[in-house]
Design a protein around this nucleic acid. Structure first.
Lengths: 189, 189
DNA sequence: CCTACCGATCGGTAGG
DNA sequence: CCTACCGATCGGTAGG
């Protein structure tokens, strides 16, 4: 497979960055994981930061693609929101390490990539916000501060990354369902 | 004032750790902020990590004290939850930088402090969980996975730290109110 | 992918 | 709080 060694490198970097944080991860740590010398890493990548870019932007594009999928198919705002949440949770659970880097480590990106990353993230937030706005217009959702509600929803769907265990008893679909119900109807009877 | 120079140091360290992350913050950065040489920092503290301890544990104790306050005074589970959220948001908004360190940087604590920190955090989570359990028993709240609901609630109240601006138009009280309503009744009409 | 190495920077200490 | 300094480690390059 072409680039398979590069793929392996990115995978190991993802795990390392997720576990120790970008700044606390050294190229020598990573080289050790790969079973090679630190200097040899640079035949696969140009810099430590480049790996962070690859990880963050790949994840950002996955989320944006999910948004397109939602907007292409579903009509009702509640269904749209449920679908968006389901896809979001699915993306996170499919690769918790990469998600952790996407959520917590992007700030170590250098310009101009950092700015570009924030733009993509904003685009995603806007997509969720549009769904909520539609729900308001359809008289399905309460009238709330849309920005506030968007960020609150994203916080709950991102947080699962902190405790999600692939070996745990809850499957991504169940998590998404519970979360959607919580977001839509709250805690009160 | 006794320890005022130490207080200033911790304050500046808090800001630095919040903005750049613990691992990416250097003692020379911090010394520069203080207007002294890096070596001089060690007449106030023993190590870089010690500052992280001070910040994290102070914040942890604030949250635990809030829990006591809630449990001492309020009876109804809904009121308890609203009060807990209000105090939580208030603690975060009072010092967003320290809260950021508490939420994101504690993993750089060294043992045995890391373990002790996790214990305190678990104690807090348990306190919130107890409130939800009471609400269930009082037939006020839905029957949900208590652990799941607790983490979801904490995620939303912690996330405000990412975007809260002390100069913004929303006051902590309003944020707490919106958040409580959202958590209790959800988005749906 | 390796050996050999670079300058820069790291957290921290000794001694005043 | 300073000067002077330590050994360790950092990301990265040259040349093969």
């Amino acid at each position: 497979m072409a680039h398979s060694r590069l793929n392996e490198l990115i995978e190991k970097a993802t795990k390392l960055f997720a576990e120790k944080g970008f700044a606390a991860s050294s190229m020598r740590d990573l080289a050790h994981e790969m079973g090679i010398e630190a200097a040899s890493l640079y035949s696969h990548i140009h810099s430590k930061e480049e790996m962070l870019e690859i990880i963050c932007f790949k994840k950002a594009d996955q989320f944006l693609a999910a948004l397109d999928e939602v907007n292409d198919i579903y009509f009702n705002a509640e269904e749209k929101l449920r679908m968006a949440i389901k896809l979001h949770v699915s993306i996170i659970c499919k690769n918790p390490n990469a998600s952790k880097v996407f959520i917590d480590e992007w700030r170590h990106l250098e310009e101009p990539h950092k700015l570009k990353f924030i733009e993509k993230r904003n685009l995603y937030e806007l997509g969720i916000l549009e769904i909520l706005k539609t729900g308001e217009q359809e008289n399905l959702f309460k009238e709330v501060d849309l920005k506030f509600a968007t960020l609150t929803i994203l916080s709950t769907v991102n947080w699962i990354n902190q405790w999600y265990n692939p070996q745990g008893k809850m499957k991504p679909e169940e998590i998404a369902n519970e979360l959607s119900n919580f977001i839509l109807t709250g805690l009160k009877k």
